[in-house]
Amino acid sequence: MGLRIKILSGFLLLSLMLLIAGLWSINELKSIGSSVQRILDENYKSIYAAKLMKEALEREDSAVLLLMLGKWEEGRQILKSADSMFVHNFSFAKKNVTIPGEQEQLNTIENKYRSYKKLWERPIVDTNREGNLQWYFQQLHDSFMDVKEAVNDLIDLNDKMMYQTASELKNRSNRAIMPGIIAILAALIFTFIFNYLVNYYMVSPIIRMTERVKKFIEKRTPFDIEVETNDEIAHLAEAIYNLCESVRSREEEQ
């Protein structure tokens, strides 16, 4: 194998190793980007919708208390807007079902909210429920807490998934870095070995040949040098040997 191919193969192998490490790191970084997007799409939006559902529930609870105090118009207005806020966000969450168990949780919320709504849809003002704290604490408040708890469970479910995906991101960032670190270390070792072999098989024979040529010129010491490889260096040594031999035989003839 010729010197050119040997040296080229060294650089090519090194480049290939760095190229693959680079491509892999880029791929991992891209996948980190898509994981971040997944967290936003799958979990954060659901959590945001659930929080607004909770806010709507709180406002409905306040509105019921207003109705119990006899403030019909104010209470009904707040109930109407809070209900539409809850339904809107619930529909949004229902369209964004992305994790296992989320659909079941939404069905639970829907059922519990239906029961809760039935309680406050019936007239309160000018009925026996107006000012009836016993009715509020025994029926309405329990139902309200049930729905709120179900919404909290939905938030927990998405929170857990968000944490899990974030942990995966940590592992992925490690995977993006590691090929680079290994490539750098491998390149350093590779360079050391490459340097050693170039010195041993190329530089060192040339130095030895130079010394032998000098000795030949000065003292006519025979040019006998051993080259282990069968490449241009060996051919050069052979050519110099032939040259020295021809010079010596010409001198002997003279």
């Binding site: 191919i5 192998l13 090194l14 290939l16 693959i20 995977r175 490539a183 491998a186 590779f190 098989y201």
Partner: peptide, 23 residues
């Protein structure tokens, strides 16, 4: 797959290179 493939390639490169140089 990628961890194994890359490890295999790095190992193979270190395995092939001395065989090219050293008779």
């Amino acid at each position: 797959f990628m961890p194994l493939l890359y490890s295999g390639l790095v190992t193979a490169l270190f395995g092939i290179f001395p065989l090219i140089f050293v008779p």
